[in-house]
Design a protein around this nucleic acid. Structure first.
Length: 414
RNA sequence: GUGGCCGUAGCUCAGUUGGUUAGAGCGCCUGGUUGUGGUCCAGGAGGCCGGGGGUUCAAAUCCCCUCGGCCACCCCA
């Protein structure tokens, strides 16, 4: 491999891609701000235990997807594969338990060692939102409403479906897990190889298997709602009612699950059919057990994460920079004058492209390439008369404008 | 980690059963225009045919390995 190739699954972000990412990020800042969320930025790497402990020793992320390395001090560090663990760690180590509830958003690079495919990279970007310290369903409702509002603001909500489920509380969930394992054990010989393995490691995951044989068995599997105790049922009902009141549409997905034990109650995904196999645009749920499991004070949490690349592929092409006005000076004296005018105009709010070199033809060509609306031509003739020639790049019309009124004249191009 | 398809100019691609100096369009550069872009005309630069090995008189073309891309599985945002 050439060392000048980008590392597999990484990308340079240029031009339109960059604009798309920026829109996705700017929008989450705007919308989450209205919901009272503050931005948090945690380190891009953490001690390996932060992820190993929160994600579970058997999860795929921990067993095969982490970028783990030893630093010069001998510590095992890992590039973050997701950000909830980092936020939880920041919460614990920063002693933030006294200022609950907390509402955070974040945005940044995540790293997973996977085979790249559509909507999946090794270095990718996520934005997310977390509410810490709220036990009741209002936090679930608000975090989902935020996700929905965010997708609306990006213009993609109508291309998504909000899938909603509840995993119940710890008691309900444990009861369900037992029922489910028993059920699948009785059909062991009909399960796919993958699912037989999942039965040991992560039985709930069998529910979203894509294997047709599995699906036939899953069809008749017990539903988690059958195992709900009163509290879990009430909680879920409250979430559903709240979403109705907030006018957030959803469909119930009784097979939507989260594998790890600290997840409970609400699980949801905003999914699309437009991105091939990677349908999840925004996914999240409640994780009341996480912070305690990490060694912090028992603190409930709900949140979601969204794939920025995936959203960037879905949105309409954003507008770029405003079209500039190009300065076209001819000769050293004119260049100095142009520099002075350029800075003055920029201070006044204009976008000015100052050509760096070349004869007039070259500078005009450059002006055209940067899609200038107009050119301000400054040559010897103009300097002598204390004027500038302003060329409208659409019509080709040119007028001489006294330098004193140049700014007023250019105002029509803004 | 597994599987399918694919790597030829900056970009998008053509290249016959293996056969001389590997092509096109777009873009780029120069000139037609000593102070005028975008259109037009003329000319030009630019390729280790992803990399390595093999078969052959001869390889962009066939075989093997490898790196990368796309898509899917696994898993996930």
């Amino acid at each position: 491999m050439s060392t000048l190739q980008p590392v597999r699954g990484t990308h340079d972000l240029l031009a339109e891609d960059s604009l798309r990412h920026r829109k996705v990020i700017d929008t989450v800042r705007d919308i989450s701000g209205r919901y009272g969320f503050d931005e948090i930025e945690t380190p891009i790497f953490e001690r390996t235990e932060v992820f190993a402990r929160t994600l579970g020793d058997t999860s795929d992320i921990v067993t095969k997807e982490m970028y783990t390395f030893e630093d010069k001090g001998g510590d095992s560090l890992t590039l973050r594969p997701e950000n909830t663990a980092g936020v939880a760690r920041a919460f614990i180590s920063g002693g933030l338990a006294q200022s609950l509830p907390l509402k955070f958003t974040y945005q940044g690079s995540m790293f997973r060692y996977e085979r790249p495919q559509k909507g999946r990279l090794r270095q990718f970007h996520q934005t997310g939102a977390e509410i810490l310290g709220v036990e009741g369903p209002l936090a679930d409702i608000e975090i989902i409403a935020l996700g929905s509002h965010y997708l609306e603001a990006l213009g993609v909500r109508d291309k998504t479906v909000l899938e909603l489920n509840s995993l119940g509380d710890t008691e309900s969930r444990a009861a369900y897990r037992d029922m489910l394992v028993n059920y699948f054990r009785s059909h062991l010989d009909q399960l796919s190889e993958d699912s037989r393995e999942r039965l040991e490691r992560n039985p709930l995951r069998i529910l979203d298997s894509k294997d047709q044989g599995d699906r036939d068995i899953i069809e008749n599997a017990p539903l988690i709602s059958d195992s709900f105790n009163d509290y879990s049922r009430d909680f879920f009902d409250a979430v559903k009612q709240g979403l109705d009141v907030a006018k957030v549409e959803y469909t119930l997905s009784p097979r939507l699950v989260r594998g790890l034990d600290y997840y409970c109650h609400t699980a949801f995904e905003f999914t699309t059919t437009e991105l091939g196999a990677q349908g999840a645009l925004v996914a999240g749920g409640r994780y009341d057990g996480l912070i305690k499991q990490m060694g912090g004070p028992p603190t409930p949490g709900v949140g979601w994460a969204a794939g920025i690349e995936r959203l960037a592929m879905m949105i309409d092409e954003p507008e770029g920079r405003a079209r500039p006005i190009a300065m076209v000076p001819l000769g050293t004296e004119a260049e100095i004058k142009a520099l002075s005018l350029t800075q003055h105009l920029r201070q006044g709010g204009f976008s000015i492209e100052l050509g760096y070199s070349g004869n007039m033809k070259k500078r005009m060509k450059r002006a055209n390439n940067v899609d200038a609306v107009a050119c301000v031509i400054l040559g010897e003739d103009e300097l002598a008369k204390d004027v500038a020639t302003v060329r409208n790049m659409e019509t080709g019309d040119q007028v001489e404008v006294p330098l004193a009124s140049l700014e007023d004249h250019l105002a029509s191009y803004r």
